Simulated scan of single mutants.
Amino acid sequence: MPKVSDEHRAAQILDAAMRLAATEGFHRMTMAEVVAVSGLSAGAVYGYFRSKQELVRAIAQRAVGRIATTIDALADAEPPVPPAEGLEAVLDRLLGLSDELGYDVPALAIQGWSEATRDPEVREILGTELLRVRRAWRDFAERVRDRGLLSPEADVDAVGNALMAMLPGFIVFRTVFGDVTPRSHASGVAELMRQPPSR
């Protein structure tokens, strides 16, 4: 019988933790539950993740890292991708992660934000990981500006922040109303971008 790799066991534990967090919330998730859902022994689980905080960090790194990688790829795309189309691609990726990983990633994000309001350590973990997404959006905005898809005077920090802020809005609308899609959300942003802000 082939030996189960360390990487496979770590992924098995992480999958169990993410499923629990998405349905029960981070604050209710316990290491004992992770052990039970993973199907591994307590010794095996603690051999990979010594605490709930380590699991939270790994969850954030897995989910956030894939979004940041998607944005980085868009920044280098040929032909260049307009901002609203880039947003749509990232939202499609967000929903695709749910199918790929087998649990509701938007629900997991909401649970993470909720836990961050009560647990400073979780807030620090999420903040550190989300900085990767913020930087990726900023770099994307700079690239599309340099390629003529934004005004030459565009503040790329402000544009990057605005694009990043569209993700939580989409997640909340999707969770509460269920009638928003990546296309409809991005189309609204595209319409807004056609109207210059008043000064």
Rank of each mutant, 00 (worst) to 15 (best):
1 M>F: 08
1 M>Q: 06
1 M>H: 07
3 K>S: 14
4 V>P: 08
6 D>L: 12
8 H>Y: 14
11 A>V: 08
11 A>Y: 05
15 D>Q: 13
15 D>M: 09
17 A>C: 07
19 R>G: 11
19 R>P: 05
21 A>S: 14
21 A>F: 09
22 A>I: 10
24 E>I: 03
27 H>A: 15
30 T>D: 08
30 T>L: 07
31 M>D: 05
31 M>G: 08
32 A>D: 15
34 V>C: 04
34 V>N: 03
35 V>D: 07
36 A>C: 09
36 A>L: 13
37 V>H: 14
39 G>S: 05
41 S>V: 07
42 A>I: 06
43 G>W: 01
46 Y>R: 11
47 G>D: 01
49 F>Q: 05
51 S>Y: 03
52 K>D: 00
54 E>W: 06
55 L>V: 13
56 V>Q: 05
59 I>Y: 01
60 A>C: 11
60 A>K: 01
61 Q>Y: 01
62 R>M: 11
62 R>P: 02
63 A>G: 06
63 A>C: 13
64 V>Q: 04
65 G>R: 00
66 R>M: 14
66 R>K: 12
70 T>Q: 10
72 D>E: 15
72 D>G: 10
74 L>M: 09
77 A>H: 12
78 E>S: 13
80 P>F: 00
80 P>Y: 04
87 L>H: 01
88 E>F: 02
89 A>R: 09
91 L>Q: 01
94 L>H: 00
95 L>T: 01
95 L>Y: 04
95 L>D: 13
98 S>L: 02
103 Y>V: 06
104 D>Y: 14
105 V>T: 02
106 P>M: 03
106 P>D: 03
107 A>Q: 11
108 L>A: 11
110 I>S: 08
110 I>Q: 10
110 I>N: 07
112 G>E: 02
117 T>N: 13
120 P>R: 06
121 E>C: 09
121 E>N: 12
122 V>K: 06
122 V>G: 02
123 R>H: 12
124 E>T: 13
127 G>N: 01
131 L>N: 12
131 L>F: 14
132 R>P: 01
135 R>L: 14
136 A>C: 07
137 W>V: 06
137 W>I: 07
139 D>W: 10
140 F>I: 04
140 F>H: 11
141 A>S: 14
142 E>P: 08
143 R>E: 15
143 R>C: 09
143 R>Y: 11
145 R>C: 01
145 R>E: 04
146 D>L: 09
146 D>V: 08
149 L>G: 03
150 L>K: 03
152 P>A: 08
152 P>V: 02
154 A>V: 05
158 A>V: 15
158 A>F: 14
161 N>L: 15
164 M>L: 15
164 M>G: 11
166 M>G: 05
166 M>T: 13
167 L>I: 15
167 L>G: 01
167 L>E: 06
169 G>F: 09
170 F>V: 00
172 V>N: 03
172 V>G: 02
172 V>Y: 11
175 T>L: 09
175 T>D: 14
176 V>C: 02
176 V>R: 12
179 D>Y: 09
181 T>R: 00
181 T>C: 00
181 T>D: 00
189 V>D: 07
189 V>K: 00
189 V>G: 00
190 A>I: 01
192 L>S: 11
194 R>Q: 15
194 R>F: 06
196 P>L: 07
197 P>E: 06
198 S>K: 11
199 R>T: 12
